[in-house]
Nucleic acid binder design. Structure first.
Lengths: 191, 191
DNA sequence: TCGATTACCTGTAGAGCGGTAGGTTTCGTA
DNA sequence: TACGAAACCTACCGCTCTACAGGTAATCGA
């Protein structure tokens, strides 16, 4: 038996790790983090569970890699965001249910005690709210309807995005996520 | 050894079941449903895991009981809801983090495949959206800002409530959940 | 007072989990 | 071509989980 015959030169370490992270994304989407087993992830990339542990020494280390990938995924510089780009982002998300399912499941789990993603989401929300406040200010100035400030509106914007995702994941036929999000933006557009 | 000496006549079956459901609520809040073990719930009410199974023959049966309790908890007849009562509800929720943590964790898990609470949440959202549309119509009539209808606004209202809960659970210091919710309602109040 | 039902218990099966130990093959490099 | 590191494997440990089987003590209605 020989391992490297057919796959020889390709499959450098980095590639393999990326494959694994991608598989982990999928498995977490299907079963959540607690429900995801290393063996299930490993099988999806043609490894044994112990083979996977060669790349990520613990389950938590794998989760960290998953979260890091996400960070770099939506790392658009603040200054480049605009409200209509947000609408496009939601539209784009609506075409990639697997990924948003992964992070919706993780977010839900993360509110439980000692969850390894808890700090990540907490800090992420702080950043995202600040970022969204900036976007709102750039678009509408300091004055939003009803005397709201961008800082007070940002949590609402984020809440709408997250909340719609759950409704949409559970029942995509009944919920027009991008449409609803545009409705919300329109609400902010009224001076 | 005798079991019924000290606790004799009290602790009828129904009471015991209610105790167990309450304990399950707590454990699910702390660890999620998948992470919650029957043994942990049992211990909290002074039973063995097998003793608990006498009342609920499977783990799923216990979850069903938890969800049923919730249903009857917020079973206010549609006609009696009003928008200012919603604001009060959110304020009330902000004083009971354990319960909203339970259902936020369950909602997150429920988007995963084959989760036993998935149907429950899907159907619940259908009902709640319809109910909220009714509330909005009663309060604002058919015309909301920007030509929105109550039916199109209801998903947003629900999304804001859910989404704010996650932000608040993760970082209660930074997020004024009731205040933010009132801000959102004010947005709808503009004609 | 008896007999069924209820309310638990102990014991255990059976599966899955993350992780360790320690091997062997392959590959890159000198 | 020799050697160390990388890439995987098998074997296994200890734990936890749900659930079943079958027991015993208390309770309650006839």
């Amino acid at each position: 038996m020989s391992y490297g015959d057919a796959m020889n030169a390709r499959a450098k370490s980095g590639e393999r790790r990326a494959e694994i992270v991608r598989a982990a994304l999928e498995v977490i989407a299907e079963r959540g983090y607690r429900g995801a087993s290393l063996a299930a992830v490993a099988e999806r990339v043609g490894l044994t569970q112990q083979g996977l542990l060669h790349y990520f020494p613990t389950k938590d280390a794998l989760l960290v890699a998953v979260l890091e990938e996400r960070d770099q995924w939506d790392a658009v510089p603040d200054s480049r965001w605009r409200v209509d780009l947000l609408a496009s982002l939601v539209e784009y998300n609506a075409m990639r249910p697997a990924i948003i399912q992964t992070f919706s499941a993780l977010l839900g789990e993360s509110v439980t005690e000692g969850h390894p993603a808890r700090d990540y989401f907490t800090e992420r929300y702080v950043r995202v709210r600040a970022s969204m406040a900036g976007v709102l200010r750039a678009e509408y100035g300091d004055r939003l309807p009803n005397g709201l400030t961008p800082e007070r509106t940002a949590p609402l914007l984020v809440a709408v995005m997250d909340g719609l995702q759950y409704q949409w994941l559970l029942d995509p036929e009944s919920v027009d996520m991008p449409g609803a999000f545009r409705d919300f933006l329109a609400l902010l557009g009224e001076a």
